[in-house]
Amino acid sequence: MDAPRFNHFDGEGNAIMVDVSSKAPTHREAVAAGKIKVSRPVLDAITGHTAAKGDVLGVARVAGIMGTKRTSDLIPLCHPLMLSNARVDFTILAEECAVEARCTVKLDGKTGVEMEALTGVTVALLTIYDMCKAIDKSMELTGIHLLHKEGGKSGVYDHD
């Protein structure tokens, strides 16, 4: 079995943007998730809508969607993509004192949207941190990972 080849480098080892011009567009979708562990007062402020900066999850949702659209500005060599859908959903995990964020991104295109989904989740969680840090700075972002992707040459991937 051949060693995996990194496709962001040319034959001389120079960093390059992958050339996707000859690829046919296909439907692509990616879902990423992550959590922010918070203290009970932070969770109460989020669920009770009493945080001084406003609707924490509403703002974090918009921030996460904005993050998906700005991924190519943040991650070198990412292609700028015309997304057809991006959404961020939250689940309150009261027993863990945490909030889970899940970002789903879709498009019909020549390259995948995994980085956009991962960026969307991360930006959403960072926004929760920013909006709640006046209450408690000990929050912890954890478990950010790709849950699912489909489309393209590598097919379907599902995280165990």
Rank of each mutant, 00 (worst) to 15 (best):
H145A: 13
V123K: 03
R87H: 11
R102D: 13
T50A: 01
G13Q: 06
K35R: 15
D89E: 15
A94S: 13
E114Q: 13
G58I: 03
L147F: 12
L57E: 02
K153S: 11
V56Q: 02
E100W: 11
T111Y: 08
I128V: 15
D130E: 07
T111D: 11
R28C: 11
E12V: 00
I144T: 08
K133G: 00
R28W: 11
M66T: 13
G34M: 01
E29W: 14
S84D: 14
E95Q: 11
A124T: 02
V62N: 06
R70A: 12
K110T: 12
G151P: 08
C132I: 01
R102T: 15
V99M: 02
R102A: 14
M131Y: 02
E96Y: 04
A32F: 07
R87G: 14
T47Q: 11
G13L: 06
S154N: 14
T71I: 04
G54S: 01
D73G: 13
K69A: 09
M82C: 15
L93Q: 08
M139C: 05
G151Q: 10
P41F: 02
L74D: 07
R61F: 02
H148S: 12
K110E: 08
P4K: 07
G155S: 11
D130K: 01
G54V: 02
V59L: 07
G11K: 09
A24W: 04
L43R: 02
A124H: 03
V99R: 02
